[in-house]
């Protein structure tokens, strides 16, 4: 247990972060160089101000027409994504581990807030799963891997909460928690979780294309 835990919280962190960062950088380079070769006009039309505008507007709740048409989905999506990103970065235990490893530290979430936010993430995933099962247009296009990816995202939070409350075998749970976190980080570049990178890339392109060339807003 000792060795596994030390490996997962030590060298494996490097492995996961390197795969995540270089996976995303590699994806970025692969896509841009491919576009440069075959669709070079994308770069001719690209305009930073329109790209930024498009990205920002789609990051503001209810700023776009389709967000207003689907208020429940909008609220759940925003809450889910905010919690999903904030909790791992600002959870007390995580920050302490960074401090122990590298001596760097930053602001942390109060434990009760982090716990609440983790429940919100799980609630969001539950909502997405139910939505995919119940809403015909979502069910029709949902593939097995879509549920699988939702599971990959859910597991670190589920095991994190179980470890926090020390339900079941704590030692096993904490190892599962760390492992699930690694799986999620590694899955990002290779699944549609990469929309972390592709959202700004695609919006940048679409924003430039619509606002710049087509003279019309893209939201």
């Amino acid at each position: 247990m000792h060795t596994v835990y030390i490996f997962l919280t030590g060298p494996m962190v490097w492995v996961s972060l390197l795969i995540l960062v270089f996976g995303l950088i590699g994806k970025f380079i692969y896509l841009t160089s491919m576009a440069k070769k075959r669709d070079p006009w994308i770069f001719n039309y690209f305009q930073f101000k329109y790209a930024i505008k498009s990205i920002l507007i789609w990051l503001v709740p209810f700023a776009t027409m389709n967000m207003r048409r689907n208020p429940v989905m909008t609220v759940v999506t925003f809450v889910f994504h905010i919690c999903l990103i904030i909790v791992p970065i600002f959870a007390l235990a995580h920050v302490i581990m960074w401090e122990e490893a590298w001596g760097i530290s930053w602001w942390t979430l109060p434990e009760t807030v982090a716990v609440t936010m983790s429940f919100l993430v799980l609630g969001g995933i539950l909502f997405f799963i139910i939505r995919r099962m119940k809403l015909p247009e979502a069910r029709y296009v949902t593939r097995v891997q879509d549920y699988f990816i939702l599971l990959i995202v859910a597991l670190p939070f589920l095991t994190g909460l179980l470890a926090y409350y020390q339900i079941f075998n704590y030692q096993l749970m904490i190892i599962l928690h760390v492992a699930a976190g690694h799986i999620m980080l590694i899955a990002i570049p290779f699944t549609w979780l990469s929309h972390l990178l592709l959202f700004p890339m695609l919006r940048g392109y679409v924003g430039s294309e619509f606002q710049g060339v087509r003279n019309v807003k893209d939201w």
Binding site: A138, S194, Y205
Partner: peptide
């Protein structure tokens, strides 16, 4: 090229 791959690969099939 990239545009096709990015669009097909990014779709989370939300149905929105």
């Amino acid at each position: 090229s990239a545009r096709l791959r990015a669009m097909v690969g990014t779709c989370v099939s939300c149905g929105l």
